[in-house]
Amino acid sequence: MSDGFKVLYYVNQFFGQIGGEDKAGMKPEFHSEKIGPALGFEQLLKGEGKVVGTIICGDNYFNENKEESLDYILNLVKNEAPDIFVAGPAFNAGRYGVACAEISRAVAEELNIPVVTGMYIENPGLDTCKQVAYVVSTSDNAGGMRKALPAMANITYKLGKGMEIGSPEEEGYIARGMRKTIIVEKRGSLRAVEMLIKRLKGEEFETEMPMPVFDVVQPAPAIKDLSKATIALCTSGGIVPAGNPDRIQSASAQKWGKYDVSKRDALNAPDFYTTHGGYDPVYANEIPDRVAPLDILKELQKEGYIGKVHEFFYTTTGTGTSVSNAVKFGTEIGKELKEAGVDGVILTST
């Protein structure tokens, strides 16, 4: 007799019933029993699937030792060879969400195992994994567990049974961003006329092609006298001091750093290198100024073309970084620069 499909579950130290913040530094562990949400989860699989174990990892540990944790967890998953991997739900917990997201993405992309997780729509981890995992839309706190688990279990069940997953509205997951081509009952012209009539009546209507909305940023007024202006240097190219003292992530950055460059003429190797994981680093590591040209700025300062180069250089990595984090970084950095009386910024990307 078959045991049905196999599910492997991931939770953090809190939902894994190890402890709270004080245990957030724990290393990942594998338990062959069902712990926390994994316990109730199996009962929701209609007897067709089995949770074969729970992986527990501390949120801080994961976020501070991402590559190591991922390696370890991926190995565990490989050994257990589940049919489906389930993580969370993480609700609106930031570190937990990022952990669920990173692991989900790695499992889905590297091991090709379908993944189900759950998050609040604003969780910073969402953008990292929603394209490759089914992320059930949850409330912003653990009070939503009772609603989230059945939805996650239902998708898991369908994946396990090889059934087709319905639309985001039907199944309760956050749209993956896939434009699925389907055949519908009404022809296009009829849908257009119905949409027209709704629009004319002032009723609600739903476009079939939501246009992506871009932030419109008003350009700042031109700097009138560059020779008196203070110019700051900022990059998303991942240039950091050797050793990456603030441990800025090589992808999906969670933070930015600032470094005093007032006494330097350039961002030269080996004092600086790139931690960016999204491009070939050879040329950037040879001469980091190629990514963030402090050398030229300093020359321009000497020539008197610009007034002054701001004493701090700001940096983060742009690859895979969620829009919400990028907005947050930009706002924080912008505020500091403004307070420091910086007139203009050279922003380089890769």
């Binding site: 081509t181 055949i183 022809r187």
Partner: peptide, 22 residues
């Protein structure tokens, strides 16, 4: 690709194909 099929993605709405966000 649907591109090669006559009338598949009709822009006068003659056919029943569409896209939904999944």
């Amino acid at each position: 690709e649907l591109n090669a099929v006559i009338g598949s993605t009709s822009e006068i709405g003659y056919h029943n194909v569409t896209c939904r966000l999944y």
